[in-house]
Amino acid sequence: MEPLARFENVGLRYGTDAEVLRDISFRLDPGAFLFLVGPSGAGKTSLLKLLYLDRRPTRGRFTLFGENIGAAPRTKLPALRRRIGVVFQDFRLLDHLSAFDNVALPLRIGGVAEAEVAAHVEELLDWVGLARRRDARPRTLSGGEQQRLAIARAVIARPDLLLADEPTGNVDPEMAGRLLHLFHELNRLGTTVVVATHALQLLPKVPAATIMKLDRGEIADPVGALRNPPAPPETRAAGAAR
């Protein structure tokens, strides 16, 4: 099977700093569910930036949707980006838009008719429990509400690839479980999902998931070795690191 994404000895550096990702090699198959774990500063967000086409790799070969990203002309990238949904670690909601318009953004960029947009957005807002805040500005929402809004925006257009950076950091365990359930459902419908997280207690909730650990810019474990999540003490340590 043609992988959805393939990393071959990929390296990434910001400017002239030292590499924050080194010798990254792995493949992501269509329909996979990947947890990305590792201590703060390990490079999880940086790896996601490569996946959501914010950066080109500075070394190695990275292929996404069959396109060699290092060499692809930039005019090809928007169409690829429209197949990707991203929950940013810092949400990046547009403050001048209502909750509704934030969620509608990917559909409108994708050219979906306005009547359809409204129906979809209302349904999803309801699902994440923000139906009554549809006209609220993100700034007036609580941290958890903003997070749910960011997730709604990421999944609204049914992306082929869903990337979530610490998507449950600001919600209570119950909501975290619900959100993960949403990811799981989308995954079952065919969406490839990558979740970067410190919340190791979430890992067992997706039994079929692959787990990849990053440490100081390198893959610390062979893919799949962490299939059985670590013991509680490490969970506490990871929680304390945040």
Binding site: Y52, R81, R92, I109
Partner: peptide, 16 residues
């Protein structure tokens, strides 16, 4: 800058 960056990452074309 920030709004444009987000639109860009969501796949908006330069012309849009």
């Amino acid at each position: 800058h920030e709004s444009i960056a987000v639109l860009h990452l969501m796949g908006a074309e330069d012309s849009s």
